[in-house]
Computed example of a mutant assay.
Amino acid sequence: MKIGTIDLGERPLFLAPMEDVTDIGFRKMCKRFGAAMVYTEFVSADAVIRSIKSTLSKIVIDDSERPVGIQIYGRDVASMVEAAKIVEQVKPDVIDINFGCPVKKVANKGAGSGMLKNIPLLLEITREVVKAVNTPVTVKTRLGWDNDNLIITDLAEQLQDCGIQALTIHGRTRSQMYTGEADWTLIGEVKNNPRIHIPIIGNGDVTSIEQAHEKFDRYGVDAVMIGRATFGCPWLFNQGEKQLTLDDKIDILEEMLRINVERIDEYRGILHTRRHLAASPIFKGIPDFKQTRISMLRATKMEELLAILEDCREKLRK
């Protein structure tokens, strides 16, 4: 599979862009274990234009994580075009436009999946961003606003006509948020539409390599994007023969922490990493883990968090 000139190999797995999740340490670990493409946290076009420091820090990328995409969202043509031009200076491999985020603070302002209620504007933004940059432009969206407006089959053709070089489809409507089950049948219809020639990336409810392969087999998608199942599990992408031990996995989480503290700062590096630690399923075998989880979420110093992890390691060995 290729996006532009970027060769992503056969049946590639992508890490979804997720706010407060896909920080640089996590991305580098996912890349190490087999993610073919990773994305930064998505960023607001308005915040990029205003040079908000916390936003610009989210789009710092490292050559070791390439190919890497930066995803932007906004609600008007001018700001999206200007943000795309600014983001291009960071030299991402792909600029992705978010027309899929369902959260109220984004969608209710007309951005993200809110754009699914204004298709003419959605298409105009896409056309103008494509024209404004030389970097490949891709789009991530949903099936439609609700079950009465499942527009993705027509929308995919319209987006392709705007010049995008790949399309990611999350198999839910905006009204579903993250509830219910992702419906891949319409994703498959888009992929099997003879008029579609750009890569189609499927997303939604994939929690293992085995499930990803089933989606490739059943729906013929070009790539599978994995999101929430990766929380605290960057090794989810591991397709190698080597089985990771619990010790290996704790080492990986500790390395993520060190990378984030070094590349961001201690406070925010810990803030990002402790979310992964608290969500990681590897600690489920610890008796009364709830108290340990609370300690993880309250930790403010790297040494404190490392000590908690080492304590978990000892408990898991028993």
Rank of each mutant, 00 (worst) to 15 (best):
K2F: 10
I3T: 06
D7T: 04
G9F: 07
E10I: 13
R11E: 15
R11F: 07
P12S: 11
A16D: 09
E19N: 08
T22M: 05
T22E: 06
R32D: 00
M37V: 15
E41L: 08
I49D: 06
I49R: 08
R50M: 06
S51H: 15
K53A: 09
S54Y: 11
L56E: 11
S57P: 00
I59G: 01
I59D: 01
I61R: 08
S64Y: 01
S64H: 03
R66K: 15
I70A: 02
Q71W: 11
Y73P: 04
G74N: 07
V77T: 12
A78T: 07
A83K: 01
A84F: 01
K85E: 14
K91Y: 06
P92R: 03
P92S: 01
I95K: 00
I95V: 10
N98D: 15
G100T: 13
C101Q: 02
C101V: 03
K104S: 12
K105N: 07
K105P: 00
V106H: 02
A107Q: 02
K109N: 06
M115D: 04
P120S: 03
R127D: 01
T135E: 06
R142T: 03
G144N: 11
D146F: 01
D154H: 14
A156Q: 09
Q158S: 14
L159A: 12
G163L: 06
G163W: 05
I164S: 02
I164K: 05
A166Q: 08
T168R: 00
H170K: 08
H170I: 04
H170E: 07
S175L: 09
S175D: 10
Q176F: 01
Q176W: 00
Y178Q: 04
E181W: 05
A182Q: 13
D183F: 06
T185E: 12
I187S: 04
G188F: 03
G188P: 05
I198D: 00
I200M: 01
G204S: 09
D205K: 14
D205F: 11
D205H: 13
T207N: 13
I209R: 13
E210H: 14
H213Q: 14
F216G: 06
Y219W: 15
G220R: 12
V221I: 15
V224Y: 08
M225P: 09
R228D: 10
F231P: 00
C233S: 14
P234L: 05
L236I: 15
N238Q: 08
N238V: 09
Q239H: 04
E241G: 12
K242C: 05
L244W: 04
T245I: 13
L246C: 05
D248W: 12
D248G: 11
K249V: 07
D251C: 14
N260G: 08
Y267R: 13
R268C: 06
R268E: 10
L271G: 00
P281F: 12
P281Q: 11
G285I: 03
K290R: 14
K290H: 08
Q291C: 04
S295T: 14
L297M: 15
T300P: 00
M302W: 00
E304P: 03
L305T: 13
L305M: 14
L306N: 11
L306I: 15
L309M: 15
E310L: 02
C312V: 07
R313M: 02
E314G: 01
L316P: 05
